[in-house]
Computed example of a mutant assay.
Amino acid sequence: MRLPKSVSNPDLSVGPNNKQRWNQPEHRRHGFHNAHLLFRRALMFRARTVLTLTKNGNHSDLGSIPEVAALTSHPAFSALVCARGDQILYETCAEDFSTKHPHSIQSISKMNIHLIVGKLAGQGLLDLGKPVSYYLPDIGSGYATAPVQNLLDMNVANDFSEDYEDPQAGCYTEEIALGWRLPIGDAPEPTLREFANGITGDDLTNQSGFADYKSANTDVLTLICAKISPVPLSVLIENIVDAAGYEGSFHISACAEGLPAFSGGGCMSAEDLARFGLLIARRGIGVDGKNVAARDFLDKSLARSGVTLLPPKDWLRYSNHLMTNGRLVGHAGYGGQFLLVDMSTGISCAFLSVLQNEAGYDSDYMTKVLDGLSAILEACQ
């Protein structure tokens, strides 16, 4: 029988710069706005009970703050939602987007691992002082001797590279295992386990004095959690979704074995990302009355020293898969995302955007995003 003509999936095939079409600069905005439909495979969740958010018109002037106006008028801008309790203090979006449409949140997805690890450690199932090989005997030299705590703090030195300006960096190879792209030709698609086991290293001590950011750390933590959790990771995700009370769908890409890509595969709306921030502000107490966080673990994560981020963001430290200064807590995401929560006032600010430069990242731009969200939190005190 003669087979019909076919081509490699154009959205997932890589070009000369070693990036798939949906992450090419000219296609990235469409890609980030539709990543939940473009991934090779993904898991999807809806909440049983939705946190109702009503609009509070007393903060319409937040958009006139110079730092905020600069962000919302930037070509990269997608959406911004700031909420407290059950009220939306301020929200706005680009003409081609909505605050209710799913958007790639990239590494903000890592905050789910903070919640899951905290719960497992609190149940006595995970000892953060143990080396990774204690839980994953087959792990490669890039992680075998590193304490689990060091992965949580982005405090591991190995051969994995997350240099977005280098098209051959390890983070782009990682995307095959995350279900974001296809390997070249007929090469097999590695699982998350196979990818992580292949990372090498020698002295894993971070000598830089700053956080050594590696999304592969999250992949290894995912493998550990999948192994020791008494229930599937999908159940733990569902618990978080129910606790946050998302109105729309939460999508997360998955590897060939079905493990979720907590390192960056999450997609959700700006309103629901703000709901996730409100869950953090409530220290894990869900709208369903269940607690999906270990409060002691979260509080200690804010209070402990962690590892300082690179300047000019060195007023923040990386602690247990969170970025924090002790009061503010959140996480950045590749492409222009940030969730920032004020644990004192309970305000959650979710910012989504899509940088269309070649690298898909700009440190100066992300500093301005952080400054804008901080200005909102300061104005609302």
Rank of each mutant, 00 (worst) to 15 (best):
Y90Q: 03
M366A: 07
I240R: 09
P16A: 14
C93Y: 09
K130G: 03
D342M: 04
T218D: 04
G265H: 01
A157Q: 09
I224F: 08
L62H: 00
S215G: 14
F45I: 12
L377A: 08
R193S: 11
V156T: 01
N9Y: 09
G306Q: 02
D212S: 10
A121M: 06
R275P: 02
Q123P: 07
I347E: 06
Q337H: 06
N23C: 08
S374Q: 09
A83I: 12
Y134T: 15
T72Q: 01
E247Q: 13
I139G: 00
L178I: 04
Y365V: 09
A187C: 06
G335A: 09
K227G: 07
S234Y: 08
A76L: 06
A146G: 00
S78C: 11
L373K: 01
T324I: 11
T205V: 12
N56W: 06
Y361L: 10
A303Q: 15
M111A: 08
A332C: 04
E165T: 15
N217W: 08
V117Y: 05
C225H: 02
L259G: 01
T345S: 14
R48D: 15
G333L: 02
N239L: 14
V341C: 07
Q207W: 12
T52W: 06
L355H: 09
I116G: 03
P10R: 01
G170W: 02
F338S: 10
A196F: 05
L125K: 05
L310R: 12
F97M: 05
A293S: 15
P16N: 08
L12I: 13
V231M: 12
A261G: 04
L322H: 10
S234L: 10
L221Y: 06
T145N: 12
S161F: 05
G306T: 10
W22D: 02
F77W: 04
P232K: 04
G57N: 14
L352T: 10
L310K: 15
N197Y: 07
C82V: 15
G201F: 01
I240F: 08
S263Q: 15
I376V: 14
E67R: 03
L37S: 10
L38W: 06
N217P: 07
K300W: 13
M268W: 08
G333K: 07
A196C: 10
G170D: 00
M1F: 12
G336S: 03
K290E: 13
A216C: 11
L233V: 08
G330I: 08
E162G: 01
I224C: 06
I252A: 04
L71M: 12
N112C: 14
L136V: 10
S141T: 15
A332F: 11
